[in-house]
Design a protein around this nucleic acid. Structure first.
Length: 282
DNA sequence: AATGCTACCTGGTCGC
DNA sequence: TGCGACCAGGTAGCAT
């Protein structure tokens, strides 16, 4: 589920609703996420106050005033909702309940690919999940020259490279297809064949698409909802993702002949593109 | 070192 | 209506 825009939306809404609240109780109903929730998680966090919120790639980080930070990843199906009062009962996949002085956070994750751990704030960026992290899409140091240099030894298709979090940190499977469509670059092209101009286009389109999605509250396909329970809206603006056989927004070709938007599988993940606009040859 | 396959887990959908 | 196969926003670990 959550790619960068969804995590950004979660962060912004929780920051607004919960702010610098105190953690009053924590209930781990099922610790068996992709990484097991540490047995002493509640003990370490209880009683602390939240000091700030961050998004690092697709990770949601909550800094506490006791020198610790919560590292939260929502995996494929994780949702955090904010409630005013404790519900009568919990859902089957409500795994973690965090009660604060300003509201209750419910972590629901059907597929349990998420993770919820703590670490010392001072050590945060040395944590193994951040140690190999690439550059943030909105970092001003993400320049065409930087990207071209990062891709110069990468022979995998550009679509696969965009999903590599150690290059750019935060692009997921939906946005990788959308970005390449907007940049008019075939997902099949080898990453090391991108020109400087194409790197610039990838960066510009990455930033504009992710920003538009953040402005729309992210994309809701199946699982994702915002902490206030509403769906995101960016799925309505997708040009190619999950649009197999349809006409792409910029295409004037005869889809009876072209077949419209094509779906292929790269490294086990679905890719969607318009073969007319995104030609394989440079 | 880079790359690609598989596993982790549940649930929804599709075809028979 | 039931059942199996396959698919889904992500990541990590292993083999090649």
């Amino acid at each position: 589920m959550p790619e960068l825009p969804e995590v950004e939306t979660v962060k912004n809404q929780i920051a607004k609703r919960i702010g610098t609240a105190r953690i009053e109780s924590i209930e781990i109903r099922n610790p068996n996420l992709r990484c097991k929730v540490p047995a002493d998680f509640a003990k370490m966090i209880l009683g602390a106050c939240i000091s700030s919120y961050r998004r690092i790639g697709k990770y949601f980080v909550i800094d506490m005033n006791n020198g610790l930070s919560i590292i939260w990843h929502l995996g494929m199906s994780g949702k955090i909702t904010v409630l005013e009062t404790m519900p009568e009962s919990f859902g089957k996949h409500d795994h973690v309940i965090i009660k604060t002085s300003k509201g209750i956070l419910i972590y629901n994750d059907v597929r349990r690919f998420g993770m919820l751990v703590y670490c010392c704030t001072a050590e945060l960026l040395r944590h193994r999940v951040f140690a190999k992290m690439g550059i943030d899409p909105f970092d001003k140091n993400l320049t065409p020259a930087y990207l071209a240099n990062s891709l110069k030894n990468i022979k995998t298709p550009i679509k696969v490279a965009l999903l590599d979090q150690s290059i750019i940190n935060g692009i997921g499977n939906i946005y990788a297809s959308e970005i390449l469509f907007a940049a008019k670059i075939s997902p099949l092209r080898a990453a090391n064949t991108m020109s400087l101009l194409e790197c610039e286009s990838i960066i510009n389109n990455t930033q504009s698409i992710l920003q538009k999605s953040i402005d729309s509250g992210g994309s809701t396909l199946k699982d994702y909802i915002k902490p206030n329970g509403e769906k995101g809206n960016f799925q309505n603006l997708h040009c190619v993702y999950d649009k197999t056989g349809q006409r792409c927004p910029n295409c004037s070709c005869d889809i009876a002949k072209s077949g419209g938007i094509k779906k292929i599988v790269q490294s086990g993940r679905s890719t969607f593109y318009c073969p007319i606009i995104q030609k394989s040859e440079q």
